[in-house]
Design a binder for these strands. Structure first.
Length: 157
DNA sequence: GATGAGCGA
């Protein structure tokens, strides 16, 4: 019994130590294998599905929300236009969003403005990605942990 | 603020 256990331990130790050098060689081999394309996606999917919301990139840093709207309103009814600016510095981040009234206007806006010049820069217009809605505080406005009384759970029942 | 990637208070 003791012999078998000792043999097993010795064998396990030997097999654990021996292949280490070989494994490094093998991993080097497989990682440098040029034909090993692990189903890499070479094709890009379309930016986003159609929506009235447009993402505009490539803006000049002096392009403002008004300039953005005035550029896009030529192709449809712009409901909302915003150039994203940094909260602390206040400077434009170089991209913005434009919301049209209808999908036809949004499509016309993309086709009419994508690749055009605005303030000396080539801008790119595409459908904006759907964004998760902000947490609506219609239910919870109190900070938990500091004796916030909930009158609805008081006295009933 | 420097022709610069990206998805917003």
């Amino acid at each position: 019994m003791a012999l078998r256990a000792a043999t097993a331990t010795a064998t396990a130790t030997a097999t654990a130590v021996a292949p280490r050098g070989l494994r490094a060689l093998l991993s080097t081999f497989s990682s440098s294998f040029p034909f090993n394309t692990p189903s890499k996606q070479v094709e890009k999917p379309p930016p986003a599905e159609p929506s009235t919301n447009l993402f505009v990139s490539g803006l000049s840093k002096r392009t403002t929300s008004e300039g953005l709207r005035e550029a896009f309103v030529k192709h449809g009814e712009v409901v909302h236009a915003r150039v994203v600016t940094d909260r602390v510095s206040g400077y434009s981040k170089g991209f913005g969003f434009v919301r049209y009234a209808t999908l036809e206007d949004a499509e016309a806006g993309i086709k009419g403005m994508d690749g055009q010049f605005l303030d000396g820069w080539v801008i790119f217009a595409e459908y904006a990605r759907p964004r998760p809605p902000p947490p609506s505080m219609q239910n919870n406005n109190t900070t938990p942990g500091y004796g916030n009384y909930n009158s609805s759970s008081y006295g009933s029942q």
